[in-house]
Design a binder for these strands. Structure first.
Lengths: 216, 216
DNA sequence: ATTTACTTGTGAAATTATTGACAAGTGTTA
DNA sequence: TAACACTTGTCAATAATTTCACAAGTAAAT
């Protein structure tokens, strides 16, 4: 599709990059300077070839024969590729239990995501930790003014589509959807569905008679 | 790998089944009796071939030419395949923000999962909604006694491995891991990692220059 | 300084998954 | 009752992904 400079990174490779990153950081903190694909593969329970392939596609840094990859450079490269270097601001709509959890989840800042503020129809609390909760009326105005392009939907399924429409209107380009519905959006808008039911299906299936092959 | 009676259902197919289920249920509630693969595919934004393939693998019910699939039978079959028919009990460890969210998430019961109780090192609240919170000391005893086989880990990453060990010792067979670490477990134990970072990577990547092709 | 052993990176092969084509069969209509 | 239109289900073809094999190159050892 887009065959210019950018290499063709597969979805499966892309999903593995964050776990490489986690592993590399722990090793760096242990004082390790170089890591080979073989060592990384062992730790991640993958084949070395998968690791080499993933890194060769996503990364510019070249590994040194006999030594492996320079850990620091590798981390920087992966972070740059994933866009973790420039913090991305996001807004969240639906401050129920799930919304609160995401608002208070500390881990996102490690991944370059910064949830600025939460919105809801009725504001019961002024803030979750340091994140303010605002009325949904203020969504469009604030989002446009702050030039935010990522929206997180943690409403119930009934409200989700309406919120999505509002987000699109307000200039949101990527939606992380936690509501169990299929959203209809213009095709230039990216939607990533976090489908808890699908995850459960995989787990549940593993416990029944007809397992799928391989690991999950 | 396991080429006996059980058909080889792919991971991608398996993940789509819950969304079929959601769609089918809404249509059933609208009074629809039969649905063809073409209609389903349109609603899910898939090709009819994918739908037919998925259903033919997972389902015993045969579609009727000219009519399509009998919605009620299809729902029953998918639910049976996914194991939603017999409710599965689970326990959760780590009652932080994420743990609370999962404990209070109403949606799981639709998918056959029933989180019985939450455990934590220190019990600050006696319960979340109707779910009791207990001290981790009582984990092994209660889990064994109630014969529970699914464990959910929502602790921080430091505690996760230790909790996983404890779960295995207590007879847990499937672990839904929300902590950002790779767990080491015996190979007969199923681990499903819910990697928020990986999800974010996909979303984040879509906003940058080097997009992957296709939809997410 | 030279050899050795080991690791990267690339292009090709094998495996797996997705998509397409078509025969078989059923409800509908005339 | 017979012809038609439409949908399923399977087999074949295409596309994608994973795995293999090997040349090239470098740190370490001699």
């Amino acid at each position: 599709m887009n065959d210019e400079i950018c290499r063709n990174i597969s979805l499966t490779s892309l999903r593995r990059l964050p776990s490489y990153l986690r592993y590399l950081k722990t090793q760096r903190d242990n004082g390790i300077d170089y890591l080979s694909s073989i060592i990384i593969a062992q730790a991640m329970e993958l084949s070395p070839m998968v690791v080499k392939k993933d890194l060769s596609i996503a990364i510019k840094v070249e590994g040194k024969p006999k030594l492996g990859y320079h850990v620091d450079s590798l981390i920087k490269d992966i972070e740059m590729f994933l866009g973790y270097d420039n913090k991305k601001d996001a807004v969240l709509v639906g401050v129920g239990s799930l919304g609160k959890a995401l608002l208070s989840y500390e881990g996102f800042k490690n991944y370059g995501l910064n949830i600025i503020v939460g919105f809801d129809k009725e504001v019961n609390e002024p803030a979750i930790l340091d994140k303010k909760i605002l009325s949904i009326d203020k969504f469009s105005n604030l989002t446009k003014r702050m030039n935010i392009h990522i929206g997180i939907i943690t409403t119930n399924k009934e409200a989700a589509q309406e919120i999505a429409n509002m987000m699109v209107e307000a200039g949101i380009k990527a939606i992380w959807n936690w509501a169990p519905v299929k959203l209809s959006v213009p095709e230039d808008i990216v939607v990533k569905n976090e489908d808890l039911a699908a995850s459960l299906a995989v787990l549940s299936n593993s416990l029944s008679d007809h397992q799928i092959g391989g690991s999950i």
